[in-house]
């Protein structure tokens, strides 16, 4: 079983949802970002999404755009992001780690070289925003052949006609983007999320994680009652943006992560 399968199976046994956290690699700098990454499992993150910085994050709102800029100003690149995963894996084997970003840096790095290096570093899955199933041959197929999960985004505009195409070849989990919009924008109503979960369940047995606009432990708990996972990104990144020092950034992210974890863990009690 892959790390993602094992993790979701354990959580199912414990009857609780996963807390999935997103931070951008190299934000606010390499060392602080690595400290955040290493601290997340202990702070209650069940699955980690690590953003690969890109100059043109077209599907992201202001918080993650700025995180990308901070990381790139600190000269973060794909090679360093993979190095960060290697360092994370030195003392953490159980928590799945998923790289998330845009295709161009991977395309430039070289797809087969990237897959080999990601596998060796300990990456479990990939989310690539601008690679819809129409482009499976570009990365999804070879990644899965190498044993790296390819996690699909589904959205409110992905209708029943299209869902099978999107879910076919998806592995690890399914990420439901609950609002049509950029990251960090408004959040969906509970009714909408409920309907979406019911609809997605008809099409897949993979774990369903819900994201976009989830900012507080209370909100996370509400979603945790409906889905297999809750994704939080922009709210964590705001802790970095508002921090006066690297130490504060690390503390801010890990404290919020702990509070969110408490919300998620207590949700079905």
């Amino acid at each position: 079983m892959s790390r993602l399968q094992t993790r979701f199976a354990e959580l199912k046994q414990q009857n609780r949802a996963a807390l999935v956290t997103f931070v951008t690699a190299g934000d606010p700098n390499y060392d602080a970002s690595l400290a955040i990454l290493k601290g997340l499992p202990k702070a209650g993150a069940d699955v980690i999404e690590l953003g690969m910085p890109f100059t043109d994050p077209m599907a992201d709102g202001p918080a993650i755009q700025l995180a990308n800029i901070r990381a790139l100003e600190g000269r973060q690149d794909l090679a360093k992001t993979l190095q960060m995963v290697r360092e994370f894996r030195q003392d953490e084997q159980a928590t799945p780690l998923v790289l998330m970003g845009y295709f161009n840096p991977i395309h430039k790095y070289g797809v087969s070289r990237f897959i080999a290096d990601a596998k060796e570093a300990g990456v479990d899955g990939l989310i690539v925003v601008d690679l819809p199933p129409e482009h499976n041959a570009d990365l999804c197929d070879p990644a899965q052949a190498a044993g790296i999960d390819f996690i699909r985004l589904t959205t409110p505009t992905t209708d029943d006609k299209r869902l099978p195409k999107v879910l076919n070849g998806s592995s690890g989990f399914v990420y439901y983007v609950s609002v049509a919009g950029v990251t960090g924008a408004g959040s969906a109503t509970l009714e909408h999320v409920q309907e979406a979960v019911t609809r997605l369940r008809r099409h897949t047995d993979l774990p369903l994680c819900i994201g976009f606009g989830i900012r507080t432990p209370e909100h996370a708990a509400t979603i945790a009652r409906l889905a297999d996972g809750v994704v939080v990104g922009s709210a964590l990144i705001d802790q970095i943006a508002n921090a006066a020092s690297s130490e504060q950034a690390v503390d801010g992210v890990l404290s919020l992560c702990a509070a969110l974890a408490e919300g998620v863990r207590g949700a079905r009690a």
Partner: peptide, 20 residues
């Protein structure tokens, strides 16, 4: 049919936009 001119072009966009 996939919007490709040789190996150029395509539809590299977020899922939200694909149906549109």
């Amino acid at each position: 049919a996939n919007g490709l001119f040789g190996s150029f072009g395509g539809q590299y966009v977020a899922e939200t936009l694909m149906p549109l």
